[in-house]
Design a protein around this nucleic acid. Structure first.
Lengths: 262, 262
DNA sequence: GAGTGGTCTAGACCACTCC
DNA sequence: GAGTGGTCTAGACCACTCA
């Protein structure tokens, strides 16, 4: 009933492996291919920005038709894990592309004119610490495990826009230091993927409105009591593994959080 | 070079219509089919909740293969315009389904337990008026054109959660009255689609943090100056036509706005 | 059992990129 | 021109729903 692809084979007819009895897993071939491709991404066989083998070659490797590989790649492309370019091939998505920059930073200026937002970063903190209970729970680690905490402010046109408190699992980000952060130009997620092999794939955010306390007011240069957006983001890496917790305060005086419901 | 599907025909080979010279429009067949299907949805040939013809029948009608129809339907299903159900057929999406209720209302309780949110609606206002300049611009109508304004509060467990100020184009919603709103059980968008033939398909939201003024504080039963989410939503109907403007204030004391970045 | 969408295959040609 | 993804077709069988 169920055809498994794990050992390479090349049967043509569907339902060629029913001999063993009840199938333990029940998923279409293209889902199995998709899982195999994801595994190659996760293991680092193909790194962000790199070209993966052609559809024809993958079809040969897995012993399935090109159409089946195509459907698997289609879904991975829809999830922004892969990027197809006609005539060139299929590439592993990366946070280094211009176009992707606004997928995770949703703040846009109220004036809808050209949003050539030149952003300045100011790092306040970068140190290792033991994870508190709530942080550990969200990152799926044990309380007391080592985490890396980064605090920073994003400025735009000299004005503070975002204050963020970022928590990363300690182990994968061993070599990450304040100097490293200062030196690197570009999005944090680009640094994470290039230097530490952790690519953020998707995220969930919880948004609230809060009043600025004394410290926050000073950091964002707003009056105490000013209404701010509180954004808690949990970002996931390849295997839906939580990899980053981010607590942000956004000043919405001249910018807003843009969202599309579809 | 380009095959047009407008007049029904049944050629097998691609590139069967190059005789006329340079093709004016340049789009794949399945996109043309998709446009035709969208037109049938827009014209009301198939109404929300109804079953559309089978893939085979559509393929016959348009003179293309079933695979081509399938690809067109795939995209429409991905955009939530159609809903496929194996063994039963393809249906026009509707706001009457339980599952869809949280696609446009993004507030969820902070306690992640069972979110059996029983919501009470309180309508404050429902009247016709002339559109102000900003409302007219967003709704793509002329300033001074008639619009319908609805104001309401959503309560949960007796506590006010959302205050909304809603603007609709006057013409399509001619018969909408306060009594009609009171009598109808279920989401507003379900009422709009069932009774007025306007189905909201997607929306864009701009989110800010604001402080409650005196009136807003009283409506939402919060202290003056309390931080609230300000959500401005522009909702679009079938042809990407703006159909509703909604300005909301959300109380985030015990709930938050949930968002997925992917 | 008839009808529907879902999967899989095989092969053809098109559009695009790069050498 | 070679190689890639993109489109289109035709036909087979599977999984599911319902009468």
């Amino acid at each position: 009933m169920q055809r498994m692809v794990t050992p390479i084979h090349s049967g043509n007819a569907p339902s060629a492996t029913a001999a063993t009895g009840v199938s333990p897993v029940f998923s279409p071939l293209y889902q199995q291919i998709k899982a195999l491709l994801t595994r190659s991404l996760q293991s680092g066989e193909w790194k962000p920005g790199e070209l993966i083998p052609s559809e024809a070659e993958l079809a040969l490797r897995f012993g399935v038709s090109q159409g089946t590989v195509r459907k698997a790649i289609d879904e991975l492309a829809a999830e922004n894990l892969l990027l197809r370019r006609q005539g060139r091939g299929t590439f592993v998505s990366t946070h280094h592309e211009e176009q992707v920059k606004f997928r995770f930073l949703r703040m846009v200026p109220d004036s809808e004119s050209g949003q050539a937002l030149r952003m300045q970063r100011q790092f306040l903190e970068c140190h290792r610490m033991r994870a508190a209970a709530d942080v550990a729970r969200l990152l799926a680690i044990k309380p007391g495990d080592m985490v890396l905490e980064i605090r920073r402010i994003l400025h735009i046109g000299g004005e503070p826009l975002v204050y963020e408190d970022i928590y990363l699992q300690g182990a994968p980000f061993r070599g990450l230091t304040a100097e490293r952060l200062e030196r690197y130009q570009g999005p944090l997620y680009a640094l994470f993927e290039s230097e530490f092999g952790t690519r953020m794939v998707r995220a969930e955010e919880k948004i609230r409105a809060v009043s600025a306390g004394p410290q926050e007011a000073e950091l964002l240069k707003v009056p105490v009591g000013q209404a701010l957006l509180s954004v808690e983001r949990l970002a996931f890496s390849y295997g839906d593994q939580p990899a980053e917790l981010r607590r942000g305060l956004y000043s919405t005086a001249h910018h807003h959080y843009r969202n599309a419901l579809s």
